[in-house]
Every structure is written in C-alpha cells, then in structure tokens.
C-alpha cells in the first residue's frame, strides 16, 4: 500500500491515515476532528476551484484546505 499525501488522493479513493505532521492549532483541530493514525478516510470531492477538499472520515464529511491536507499522510488502497 503506497503512502501519499491527502492532497494527492483522487476523488472516491479510500485509504487509512498513517501520520499527521501538523502541530499547534492546526494539529489540534485535525485531531479534534478524529483524523488520527489508523482512521479510514475517503476523498468525497473537491470544491469547484480544486481547493478545499472534502473527505469522509468516521461518520461525517469534513472539508480542509489543500495546504492543511499536506500534513496528512495516507496509505491508499491502490495507486490510481
């Protein structure tokens, strides 16, 4: 299973979070939302201007900016 940045995942692609490198406020917010290692994640889609990205995590939909998604490493099921 290759590891990619959340930013580089394709819509509808599944994966499991392996690492979150953000610290400080951003890190805290990401963790508060339940994006911790071991959590399954799926990309739902992107906003019309390609940014932010919408992901399905646990039982809800979360959107985050691409530069925020850059802190999240995901093991994806298959290379697109």
């Amino acid at each position: 299973m290759p590891t990619v940045l959340l930013r580089h995942m394709e819509p509808k692609q599944h994966g499991v979070i392996v690492k979150v490198t953000a610290t400080g406020e951003l890190g805290r917010r990401i963790r508060d939302m339940g994006l911790v290692p071991g959590t399954p994640i799926q990309v739902q889609g992107r906003a019309p201007l390609k940014d932010p990205v919408a992901v399905r995590v646990r039982q809800f939909t979360l959107t985050l900016r691409n530069n925020e998604a850059d802190h999240i490493f995901v093991d994806v099921e298959e290379s697109p």
Partner: peptide, 9 residues
C-alpha cells in the same frame, strides 16, 4: 489564516 477545517453537516 486560521485553520479552515469545516464540517459539512
């Protein structure tokens, strides 16, 4: 900028 991280309910 403050983190965006917005839930789509």
């Amino acid at each position: 900028s403050s983190p965006f991280l917005l839930e789509l309910p």
